[in-house]
Write a protein that binds this DNA or RNA. Structure first.
Length: 275
DNA sequence: CCTTGAACCTGCGGGC
DNA sequence: TGCCCGCAGGTTCAAG
């Protein structure tokens, strides 16, 4: 469940359960996901107290009182779910935190594209996972002029460019299509050819769609759940994503929503509303 | 420098 | 029913 709104929702759900709590045991059930688990993961996490939780791009950052930050990325299929103390691990449960309060925090990731890492708090921003990242989309650091600078001279399609985490973080395949629809911009438009006014509109659209999705608890595809067991419901608000052939709710449906493939990923758009 | 494509994995749904 | 194919919310690395 991994674009910015889903990760933000997970962080908000984790905070009340983790912050102030001691991790009494870490169950490391394999040696790697997309990357090897860090050395000393188990010993450095066990008996540490969680001080606070932050998010950077699509990474969850669990800050510990021993100077380390537990970093988790959910990849394509990763989920974090709470279970009571007597829970028995299931297939694809790769990493489990046993909390003092008795709850288990379970990372389940069938495709194993996720990441678990441990970083010294002092080196967090300069760490290789974070040093190359662009601005947070919901911060003042992401604006029309900043985006214009990043897109200058780029011939690549705008859809692929706003998914480039060095340009702006957090925008994935769903919200890229949704934001471009909201901004009325064709996904295949060369990024560098879009004028300043339309980029301003695009920045606003990205911020708006991400905020709305966070408010809705993210999107829940294929029947999966958020950490607290509740379902996000933004998927009911998709304007174009996964709606190929359906009529567009804005122009009334004389043209149907189209699906194309860009960089190997599905893109959805309305040929009438997006130019 | 840029862009494109493949690779990493498992599971599910559709079509035959 | 069962098999095969395509597809899935991300990131990285190699090749052209």
């Amino acid at each position: 469940m991994p674009e910015l709104p889903e990760v933000e929702t997970v962080c908000r759900g984790l905070a009340p359960v983790l912050v102030g709590q001691v991790i009494v045991r870490a169950d490391v059930r394999r040696k790697d996901l997309r990357k090897p688990f860090p050395r000393g993961l188990k010993t450095r996490v066990e008996s540490a107290q969680v001080t606070h939780i932050t998010r950077r791009a699509k990474y969850i950052q669990v800050h510990l009182d021993n100077g380390y930050v537990l970093v988790i990325h959910l990849g394509m299929s990763g989920r974090i779910v709470f279970h009571p103390h007597d829970y028995r691990p299931q297939t694809h449960d790769h990493f489990i935190l046993h909390m003092q309060g008795g709850q288990q925090i379970v990372l389940n990731d069938p495709r194993r594209f996720g990441i678990v890492d441990l970083v010294a708090a002092d080196d967090l921003e300069s760490h290789v996972l974070f040093s190359h990242l662009g601005p947070e989309p919901l911060s003042n650091g992401f604006s029309g002029p900043v985006l214009a600078m990043a897109l200058k001279g780029k011939k690549a399609a705008i859809k692929q460019v706003i998914m480039d985490q060095t340009v702006v973080v957090g925008v994935g395949n769903i919200y890229a299509s949704e934001a471009l629809f909201m901004a009325g911009i064709h996904p295949e438009m060369p990024a560098g050819a879009i004028d300043a006014g339309r980029l301003e509109t695009l920045v606003s659209a990205i911020k708006t769609v991400l905020k709305k999705a966070i408010k809705a608890g993210g999107s829940t595809l294929r029947d999966h759940r958020q950490a607290n067991g509740e379902l996000g419901y933004f998927q009911h608000s998709f304007s174009v994503y996964d709606r190929e052939g359906q009529s567009c709710g804005t122009c009334g449906g004389r043209h149907k929503i189209q699906r194309i493939v860009q960089g190997g990923r599905a893109t959805y758009f309305c040929p009438q509303c997006q130019k």
